[in-house]
Design a protein around this nucleic acid. Structure first.
Lengths: 106, 106
DNA sequence: TCTATAACTTACTTTATGTAACTTAGTTTA
DNA sequence: TAAACTAAGTTACATAAAGTAAGTTATAGA
């Protein structure tokens, strides 16, 4: 009765994407590089968790961080190639949601 | 500086999929209807959380529950049409993971 | 010197998840 | 007939993750 184990690469992808906020952060960055505070207000995430997520995403090489020496200093976050390659995932979810998700208000 | 709000249907889809275990449960059911204990051992989720997730997924009409009066009674879970329509999402993640995810062991 | 700003960080509270033992109902087994 | 077994949960308790709001750091302008 042993079942084939779930592919570890798939599992790793799922565990990344199914952390709260991660998918929304990536989705948000699909529209171009943005600053910490922009991402924060766009998706309504707390500074604490956004900071954690961005570090993890940097470490996974999904997001890159760039310091811009303005005044006060500004930090720009953008997607790497790996990050951009996730666009089809987000678009597939987007399409599905338009077809299948019902809101309370409907 | 107001940004366009994120589409509420998309947000709802994301909040469903980014709950821990939800995507894996759906993925598991893509290979056919299964019993509580099969899902549990296949993906390594605790009975408590699996029970919570299955209730939510039933409520969202993604999963359906069927009582089979064997002995002892068996409960079969399977995907509804809405659930099956999520297959492209999982396959897109699966494909991406094969191309981009690196494991520790590599 | 005082105030302002962006990007965090910290301390503390609330919520979610994990673990393991327990429940229920019908069924064998001793 | 009573003890034991099974599937599918549920409960109580412990740990981890997320939310909130105040605080920190560095630079600069009033």
């Amino acid at each position: 009765m042993k079942q084939p184990a779930i592919c570890p690469k798939f599992e790793k992808a799922i565990s990344l994407l199914s952390q709260r906020w991660t998918a929304l952060v990536i989705y948000q960055l699909l529209s171009g590089s943005q600053r910490f505070s922009e991402i924060q207000s766009a998706i309504g995430i707390s500074g604490k968790v956004l900071s954690e997520r961005l570090k993890e995403l940097e470490q996974q090489e999904v997001v890159k961080r760039e310091v811009i020496p303005e005044t006060p200093v500004v930090i720009e976050y953008s997607l790497t190639e790996k990050g951009k390659s996730m666009e089809p995932i987000l678009r597939t979810i987007e399409n599905w949601s338009q077809q299948w998700v019902k809101l309370e208000s409907e």
